[in-house]
Every structure is written in structure tokens, then in C-alpha cells.
Computed example of a mutant assay.
Amino acid sequence: MRFDIITVLPGLLESPFAHSILQRAQKKDLVEIHVHNLREYANNKHKSVDDYPYGGGSGMVMQIEPFAACIEKLQRERQYDDIIYMTPDGVTLNQQLANELSSVQHIMILCGHYKGIDQRIRDIYVTKEISVGDYVLSGGELPAAIVVDAIARLIPGVLSDETSALSDSFQDGLLDAPLYTRPADWRGHKVPEILLSGHEGKIAAWRDEQQLLRTKERRPDLLND
């Protein structure tokens, strides 16, 4: 699976993709992540990619021309299943959306900055607009890293235990059950006896019950959907 990310701050994305699961996924050739510097597609000597908004107002707006040049160059090289723009007014990222996107092959992600991007970029090129929450960040780079991580870990072979992703929170519409490991007794705080019983059926039933209880307490909205 290949991700192409367009940004004015490529250095901001170096660390998230250079460690842990995403690093191993790239080394195993399961995932390709390519970061493109938007300034290389600017058509002025100062390599600026923003300008004042028409109609006035505060902030600067990212111009259409550099984005168009970069997007169209990449499109000449391969066909993209989705071109995603990271924006607070997009659809909120959830596990179902991550599952859907993990089944495609080529994804391009546009990172906004400043006040935002020219609407024509969104109208002409973008196929999906995604938000990571109801808040505003300085740019789309960190949200883009979140989207890549959420999708890539679902690709077969990326996780050492492929069943792990299937039992994550939200995969079945519920939060995950409490988790424990050694020692079984730490300063009098003990692991529930059922988890030490070795009885798979009873353990599964306990986890199902705990998932429902935790979801009712912490995210009752998930049960109302």
C-alpha cells in the first residue's frame, strides 16, 4: 500500500514514520510512505505557496497552483483510490473508515496549513475530507500521520499478531475490555481470577461483559448509534 503526503513541512513527518510499527512495515515492503514538499511546486522565486484571501479576512490561504502541479504529477504516475484532505470540517475518522481505507492500494493525503486551502482544490481533486476531532491544529501533518497509522496497522503482515487489530476498541462497536499482565498480584492489586482460570469460554464471556460495561460508562453514544 502506498501513501503520498503533500505538505509544506516535510520534516514534521519524519519521526512518526521512522519508528516502531510503521518503520517495520516499510522495511517489509508492506507500506510505502512518500512525503512531497509542496514548496518545490511553487511558481515563484520565494517558493511561497500562500496568499491573502479574496474578500478580506485574517490569515493566509494556500494557493491552488502548487497543489495542482504536485497532484497532477503524481496522478500521471499512478491512479489513486482516494485523495484525502485533512480538515476540521471533514468526516470524523473512526475505525470503520480506517477499515475501509485499508483495503485500497494508493492514497494521497493533502496537508493544509495557515488559514486553509483554496476551495477549488477541494472541489476539483479531493475525494474524501477527514477530521481527527472537533478541534483545530496548526496544520494537517499530525492528522495525516494519525490516518496513515490507523490504516497501515490493519494491513495483513504489519502487526506481528494479525489477530490483535481485530480485537481493538471500536472494531465491534465497543471499547476494549481491561487488560492485565504479570505480576498477578502487585502490592495487593490482583488480576481478576477469571483471567487466571484457563477457561477460554468463561474468559471470553467475561471480556464481552466488560466491553459492554466499559462502553456504557465511557462512551454510551456508541450504543445509541
Rank of each mutant, 00 (worst) to 15 (best):
I155S: 04
I155P: 06
P156H: 12
G157K: 12
V158A: 05
V158W: 05
L159W: 11
E162S: 12
E162H: 09
T163Q: 13
T163E: 14
T163N: 13
A165G: 11
A165L: 08
A165M: 12
L166N: 11
S167Q: 12
S167I: 07
S169A: 14
S169W: 08
Q171M: 15
Q171T: 15
D172Q: 14
G173D: 11
P178E: 08
P178H: 11
Y180G: 08
R182T: 10
P183R: 11
A184K: 12
A184E: 15
D185N: 15
W186S: 01
R187M: 05
H189S: 12
P192G: 04
P192K: 04
E193C: 02
E193Q: 11
E193W: 07
I194S: 05
I194Q: 10
L195C: 01
L195I: 04
G198Q: 04
H199A: 03
H199E: 11
E200K: 04
E200V: 12
G201D: 02
K202C: 00
K202A: 00
A204G: 02
A204P: 00
A204L: 00
A204K: 10
A205Q: 06
A205N: 06
W206F: 07
W206H: 05
W206C: 03
R207W: 01
Q210L: 05
Q210E: 15
Q211L: 01
L213D: 04
L213Y: 03
L213E: 06
T215A: 08
T215Q: 12
T215C: 10
K216D: 08
R218P: 01
R219S: 04
P220Q: 15
D221W: 14
L222E: 13
L222H: 12
